[in-house]
Design a protein around this nucleic acid. Sequence first.
RNA 1: GGGCGCGUAGCUCAAUGGUAGAGCAGCGGCCUUUUAAGCCGUUGGUUCAGAGUUCGAUCCUCUGCGCGCUCACCA
Length: 508
Amino acid sequence: MLLDDFSELENTRLEKIHRMRDEGIEPYPTRSAKSMNNADAVKAFETAEAEGKVEVPDVVLAGRIRAIRNMGKLCFTHIEDSSGKIQLFLRINELGEEKLNSFVRDFDLGDFIEASGALTRTRRGEITLMVHDFKMLAKALYQLPADKDQVVDGETVRHAVLSDPETRYRQRYVDLAVNPDVREIFKARAKIVDTVRTYLDERDYIEVETPILQPIYGGAAARPFTTYHNQLHQELFLRISFELYLKRLIVGGMDRVYEIGRDFRNEGVSFKHNPEFTQLELYEAYTDYHGMMRIAEEMVSQCAYELNGHYIINYDGNEIDLTPPWKRITIRQGLIDYADIDIKDYPTVESLEALLKERDIPFKPGVPHGKLIGLLMEEYIEPRLIQPTFLCDYPRDISPLAKNVPGDPSTVERFEIFIGGVELGNAFTELNDPVEQEKRFLEMADAYAKDDEEQHPMDHDFVRALAYGMPPTGGMGIGIDRLVMMLTGKNTLREVILFPHLRKIEDQ
RNA sequence: GGGCGCGUAGCUCAAUGGUAGAGCAGCGGCCUUUUAAGCCGUUGGUUCAGAGUUCGAUCCUCUGCGCGCUCACCA
C-alpha cells in the first residue's frame, strides 16, 4: 500500500494534508477557477503594458509549483502549466501574516496551486502575479526530482536533471513533469502526424481502420503476437501490417486509403525496434512505386518544414537535407558503386554463397537467392545512405506482394527509404495478379518450411479478393516512430514513444 | 538469446577491503523585489537482491533482477 512505504519526507507531506483538513481546508478540491493559462497571462500583461497600464487585475492562474524562494515577509514562486511558467509574488502586505505563513507551512514543490491577483512587473522586470489569494488544488505526496534552471548569458542551464533512462521511461509522468524538452518531443510528434493526415486528406485519401486482431496475419515478414478469443474459441494474431486489408479496400473501389495505427511484431527490441510501433500505410490505385516516391519525399519534407521551418535535419551527427527530389538508386547499381559487385554475375545461390564467403559475410545456408542479396545490401549499401535515398528494385523472392519489373522476372518494383542509414519506409507497385499472388504465397511457405520460427500463412480470402480484380496500385508503409525520431534528432525510438516497452519488474 | 558496461540518499554524483559523503530537495532558524536566492544549523542510506571469500564486503567472486551499448533476430 502507498502509505506503508512512505519515507519521512512523504510523511511530512501527509501530515500537512491532515493538518489542512483539520483546519477545514480541502487539499484536493473538486474544481479550479483558473481564468487563463500562464502564456496567455504573459501576453495579456504585455498587451496592457503597451497601452500604458501597469497592471492587469482579477486574474486567476493555476499550475504546479516548480520553485519557491521564501524570504520571510515575502515569497516568490514559479508555477507551471502546459503553456509555460509564471512567477507568483506573495507578500505580507497583500496577504497578511497568517495567510502568508499558511503558504510556507502547507505548500511544497510539486503541489498544484491556484492564485488570484493582479499581473504586474517586478523591480527585476519579470512579469508576475501579485497574489491576493490562493488555494491548494492538489497536494503532491512524492517530491519531484530536484531541478533548477539558471539563465546564463540567455541560455537556460539545468541542474541535477532527472536523467536515469529507466526512471524516465518507467515513470514517464515524472519525466514529463520535470523535463520540458520531453513534452516538446511529443508535441512535435503530434504535429508530424497531423501534417501527414493533412497531406493525405488534401489528396482525397480516406483514413480507415482495419482489424488489429486478425485470424491470419500477413503483409510483412515478422513473428506475430498471439492471443485467444474465449467465446469464439479462436486463436487470433495481433497484426504485423495493414497491407492485406487495405488492398481489399482498393479491390472494393476505395481508390485512395490510408491507416495510421499500431503494428505488433514479436521480435528483438533496439533503438529502432519496439514491439508495438505506429505505422502509416497508404494505397493508391492507378499509380505505382514512382508515385509513392513522390508522395514520400513531398510528405516527409513537408513534415520537416512544418516542424522546423526548413528541410535540414540533424541526425546522429549528420546534416541531412530532405529537400525533394531524393536520390534514387537501384540495388544493382548500389552494389556496383559501393561494393564493386554486379549481381547479374551471380545468378545462382551457389555463386552468391561463394561471393559472401569470399567477402567474410556470414549467412545461414539454404536461404533464398534474394535473401543473400539482402545481406550484401545491408553490408555495403544501407550504412552509406545518409542523405534520403530510395533504394529500388528488390529481389522477387523476398518481396511476395510486389509486382515484377517488366521484363525482369527476378526483380520487383519495390523501394525502401533510407535516411541516416536507417530504414524509414517500404513501398511497391502492388502485385494484382491473383494467380501469381497465390503462387508467391506457396513459394514463401516452401522457403520457410525448414524454418520453424517463421511462417507465412496463405491468405485465401486475400487471393480471392484479387480475383475480383484490383487496379494497378502503388502502396507504401512509413514508420511513424522512426520518422519522429529523425525529425526530432533523437537517436532512439524510446525517446519518441511515451511508454516504451521495458521488462516487468517485481515491486508494486 | 550472446558479449561488454552500469546499479550508492528523492534527484545528480563522490568514496574506500575497516559498515559511506557532497550539492540540490527535505526539516529548523534569519531576511519585505527574489530568481540555481543567500547565510547558519540539521535529518535522511537494506550502497539493486541473494550467496560466497575474508577477522571484516558498497568494493573481490558467483547467481539472480533491472537498465544501457552491441551482436544476433528483425524492416
